[in-house]
Design a protein around this nucleic acid. Structure first.
Length: 311
DNA sequence: GAAGGGCCTTTGAG
DNA sequence: ACTCAAAGGCCCT
């Protein structure tokens, strides 16, 4: 269902009509994608193999890209086929979600590229958003193809082949830490056909999760993120420390719950809209702040002999 | 077999 | 310069 859209003479400008709300700020800054940067009223990034900038003007999404991307690409990427009003009704059964929906109205899940999504969330393991973004940029600059638009240049996300060719040692020199071998192994598995992402995308959700978790370094959380953000599984509920903390505080009065318990709770409670509920909870708890993670007081300092030498 | 703890590397931020 | 925490996963108990 290609959206009705117009195109300027230049050839690279596209306008897509918006039926429901779309907030680029909340959609692109909520931590589901790591490569968008704000520049004035535009967001610039590299998607679909193209240097791209997007902005919302009135009831239209305006995009420029090089090479040119079809309107349908943006329609799919921004999930403009999701009926947000209906989804809000589906998840707004309690106060915290209602507050989040009010605050982040127009936040949409994205339909990302499966390989980039898998690699990005492998890099996210025990990391933080600024660091993840940095690692992805360094890898792209080193191993990704350069693309340009309006005097700005970016780099495509590296192909699995490029990552495999680089090898784990070279990868770790970009500050990936222990994630370097996880990323390398995932690339190797994809290149060698051990994991066929196109095929996985067509499997039933449980089977797809199992296949993804066959990769070294991919557990339930990373698998759920890939399923949610790149394989159309809105019924999954990825649980990281923030979502866990958020559910404990907002819904269970601070009671400690296991990761699995939180996941089961979310899937059961929000059903086919669980993914949206998860993203609004994630964004919300990060903004309002939360108690320090459990275990902080139990942390033992590293022996001094093991600390990094000053240079 | 589920549950929980130690450990894995290094970064960006305060 | 120093400390802390980070969109987890693996391995062992």
């Amino acid at each position: 269902m290609p959206a009705r859209a117009t195109r300027a003479k230049g050839g690279d400008r596209t306008k897509i009509p918006l039926k429901g709300p779309l907030s680029l700020k909340h959609t692109l800054d909520c931590g589901q994608a790591f490569r968008w940067r704000r520049r004035g009223d535009w967001y610039i990034g590299v998607v679909g193999g193209a240097a791209t900038k997007v902005r919302v003007v009135g009831r239209w999404l305006e995009a420029r890209s090089n090479p040119r991307l079809e309107p349908d690409f943006f329609h799919r990427y921004f999930r403009l086929d999701d009926d947000l009003e209906e989804i809000y009704e589906c998840i707004s059964m309690d106060e915290p979600i209602r507050r989040a929906v009010t605050a982040y109205r127009g936040l949409r899940l994205l339909r990302q590229d499966p390989w980039e999504c898998l690699a990005s969330y492998i890099l996210s393991i025990a990391s933080n958003i600024p660091r993840i973004s940095g690692a992805i940029e360094r890898l792209s600059e080193t191993y990704g193809v350069r693309v340009e638009l309006d005097g700005w240049s970016g780099h495509k996300f590296p192909s699995p082949t490029a990552i495999q060719l680089a090898g784990p040692e070279a990868l770790s020199r970009h500050g990936l830490g222990f994630r370097a071998r996880y990323l390398f192994d995932a690339a190797r598995a994809v290149v060698e056909g051990e994991v066929d992402l196109k095929r996985v995308a067509g499997l039933p959700t449980e089977a797809a999760r199992e296949e993804l978790m066959a990769c070294m370094g991919v557990g339930p959380k990373v698998a759920d993120c890939v399923l949610l953000f790149s394989m159309d599984r809105l019924e999954v509920f990825p649980v990281d420390r923030w979502v866990r903390r958020g559910v404990e505080e907002l819904f269970f009065n601070g009671e400690r719950l296991s990761e699995g318990a939180v996941r089961g709770w979310g899937v059961e409670r929000y059903g086919r809209c669980a993914g949206y509920a998860q993203q609004y909870i994630f964004h919300y708890i990060r903004h309002i702040g939360a108690r320090p993670p459990a275990g902080l007081s139990l942390r033992r300092p590293k022996p001094h002999s093991e600390r990094r030498r000053a240079t």
